[in-house]
Simulated assay, not measured.
Amino acid sequence: MKKTKLLIFDIDGTLIDSVSGYHEVIINAMTDLGIENIDTDFNALKHHTDSYALKYNYENFFDKELPADLLDQFENLIVTYLKTQPKTIAIKGVDKILNQLRDSEYAFAFATGSLPESAILKMKSAGLEMNAALLATSKTSFSREGFVLEAIEKAKSYYNLAEFEQIISVGDGIWDLKTAQNLNLEFIGIGTKNKAVMEANGMECWFEDFTNFEISNSCVS
């Protein structure tokens, strides 16, 4: 079926249950890079992304600009530590909905605050297929707005479309909602953890997981 609309999926907490233990991985990777006094309140940072967490903590501790090549080292360390962690778990109903979307008018892409290799590893660990050509990450942009826009452009190129008729962002956090609002994208929330704060900030469409996930006119315009 011809693709005319686009869903942009966040990954951690949205498609996979990977948040538990992941902060420890990030902290261990930063420690291996010589960073001390790490600010672990990642949710409070200007950008809720792995690359910005590194930039913020590195520059605060060493009082100098983050070297360009350090992001690669950081990514490699994250992958090494992830391989020692338990397998990630797919959010209920994800595999089914992704398969259904492949035969629908909806294209989909992925936009994550993780780095590419760690995102691919976590999805694979959960048994989910992901086309790397449709993946945008914080390796190319510290801000979520930056890599969400990149995901849109990657999807246009992959599906050979100049524009999509509709673009919907799907995420589990207030940072996902705010990014969608900043980019004038429609939004669907997933999961109970951040439901209250997302509703307080204007979220209108929400599902606990993907078991009953659907896109309807009553949910998004």
Results as ranks from 00 to 15, higher is better:
residue 205 C to K: 07
residue 160 N to Q: 11
residue 186 E to P: 00
residue 160 N to S: 11
residue 132 A to W: 10
residue 146 G to S: 13
residue 147 F to G: 10
residue 165 E to R: 05
residue 204 E to P: 02
residue 172 D to I: 06
residue 188 I to P: 06
residue 156 K to M: 06
residue 163 E to M: 11
residue 160 N to V: 04
residue 156 K to S: 06
residue 153 E to L: 10
residue 177 L to F: 08
residue 189 G to W: 00
residue 137 T to F: 12
residue 160 N to T: 07
residue 201 N to R: 08
residue 142 F to D: 09
residue 185 L to W: 12
residue 173 G to Y: 07
residue 156 K to W: 00
residue 149 L to W: 06
residue 188 I to W: 03
residue 190 I to F: 10
residue 145 E to Q: 14
residue 142 F to P: 02
residue 182 N to M: 09
residue 193 K to C: 00
residue 189 G to F: 02
residue 168 I to R: 04
residue 127 G to F: 11
residue 158 Y to N: 03
residue 146 G to P: 11
residue 175 W to R: 04
residue 128 L to I: 15
residue 167 I to T: 10
residue 204 E to Q: 14
residue 187 F to W: 10
residue 157 S to W: 02
residue 162 A to E: 10
residue 159 Y to V: 01
residue 198 M to Y: 05
residue 180 A to T: 05
residue 205 C to G: 06
residue 188 I to S: 02
residue 195 K to T: 00
residue 204 E to F: 05
residue 136 A to N: 13
residue 193 K to N: 08
residue 142 F to Y: 15
residue 203 M to F: 01
residue 129 E to Y: 15
residue 134 L to G: 14
residue 202 G to L: 07
residue 149 L to Y: 02
residue 190 I to C: 10
residue 193 K to Y: 05
residue 195 K to F: 06
residue 129 E to H: 15
residue 141 S to W: 13
residue 189 G to Y: 02
residue 182 N to Q: 13
residue 133 A to R: 14
residue 167 I to R: 08
residue 142 F to G: 08
residue 179 T to C: 14
residue 191 G to R: 09
residue 166 Q to F: 00
residue 167 I to A: 03
residue 195 K to S: 07
residue 181 Q to P: 05
residue 171 G to S: 03
residue 126 A to G: 13
residue 154 K to N: 03
residue 158 Y to M: 00
residue 205 C to E: 01
